[in-house]
């Protein structure tokens, strides 16, 4: 038992697993860059929040989850959706506002939903989805289903009352939720030190009696280990866990953000800790992968992203006659 657990916490990093993780991080990076490009071409409209720089968090956490687990994310969720298994083309189509998109084009960038992969958004009111996550875990507990709910949110959400209510309920009811804080240091444009009196965010878990941990979110292997540890504990105890991943967003908050609130030098400093080269250099040193492997993976990713755009270009708009469809459920006979 102990040995098994140990193994699941530190999975043997074989060649295939290493390639997969690298592929996922690169897929997010290039998908996001392409999304920005499509935004400037006005193919994508509305809000667009990119995950560039934070890839290690989604990739590291998602690999710890099982298909039956529930996943809830914020409006900066393309990366999570990709890693969870939504097809890049379906996400791109969603951002194009096309009915072949994962939410029929109705949600756009901020509202990716997918029942098949139990991906519950794409939630764009900060901290609004935390209590829902608790409720989903409560349902699992009541129905005696052996699964957990993973809820991603930013450190900005932790200043909301809704965060505190959700943490209290989860602890009170002892339900299996992984509260996953992606601390990228900025709530839109306001730095952590201006929004939280206690900037050691993981300490807030203790107030609710929730086991908490913190990890360098730029280090994929560290995230994997922390996520596996947290998830193993939740599966074993059925209790919530609070994990803070300290990370950084390399790009602007959204496409409307002029980034007046931080120095370019700060961004450049963080880019030295870019999780993708960081991870690849490790793989090189360990002689797990080679430069040739990297080029090959990069080529595959670029092809997949190109195909996503090609697919979105072929997709259709939902007929206006269907505007009100699904405001209410269709009659079940």
């Amino acid at each position: 038992m102990e040995q098994q657990e140990q193994q699941s916490i530190n999975p043997p990093l074989g060649n295939e697993q290493a390639k997969k993780l690298l592929y996922q991080m690169l897929l997010i990076r290039k998908f996001e860059e392409k999304s920005a490009e499509m935004y400037t071409q006005e193919k994508i409209r509305g809000f667009l929040h990119l995950y560039v720089g934070e890839e290690a968090v989604a990739v590291g956490v998602m690999q710890a989850l099982r298909p039956e687990d529930n996943v809830l994310c914020t409006y900066r969720e393309h990366g999570h959706a990709l890693v969870r298994g939504l097809k890049p083309g379906v996400i791109m189509a969603e951002m194009y506002g096309r009915q072949e998109g994962c939410s029929r084009g109705r949600g756009g960038s901020m509202h990716l939903f997918d029942a098949k992969t139990k991906f519950y958004g794409g939630n764009a009111i900060v901290a609004g989805h935390l209590a829902m996550a608790v409720g989903m875990a409560l349902a699992d507990k009541k129905m005696k289903r052996d699964q957990l709910t993973c809820c991603f949110f930013g450190e900005g959400a932790m200043a909301e009352g809704a965060f505190h209510e959700a943490m209290n309920l989860a602890a009170l009811w002892q339900v299996p939720v992984l509260f996953l804080c992606e601390n990228n240091l900025y709530a839109m444009g306001t730095a952590l030190r201006y929004t939280h009196a206690q900037t050691n965010l993981e300490l807030k878990g203790a107030a609710f009696g929730i086991d908490s941990s913190t990890v360098d979110g730029m280090d994929l292997l560290a995230v994997i280990k922390a996520a596996n540890t947290a998830v193993a504990a939740i599966r074993k105890t059925g209790k919530p866990h609070f994990l803070v991943c300290n990370t950084y967003r390399f790009r602007a908050h959204s496409m409307f953000d002029a980034e007046l609130y931080r120095d370019k030098s700060e961004v450049e400093e963080w880019k030295k800790r870019d999780p993708i080269p960081g991870y690849f250099n490790y793989l090189l040193q360990q002689q797990i992968l080679t430069d040739v492997d990297f080029k090959k993976i990069e080529g595959q990713v670029e092809l997949e992203v190109k195909q996503a755009v090609d697919f979105a270009e072929t997709c259709s708009l939902e007929p206006v006659e269907e505007l009100t469809k699904y405001t209410y459920s269709e009659k079940q006979d």
Binding site: A131, M132, A139, E165, L169
Partner: peptide, 20 residues
């Protein structure tokens, strides 16, 4: 529940999504 309207209404939504 605690005095936590946003929390328990949100949890109700989640529980409904979860099949309750």
């Amino acid at each position: 529940t605690p005095l936590s309207e946003a929390g328990f209404v949100g949890a109700g939504i989640g529980a409904a999504l979860g099949g309750m």
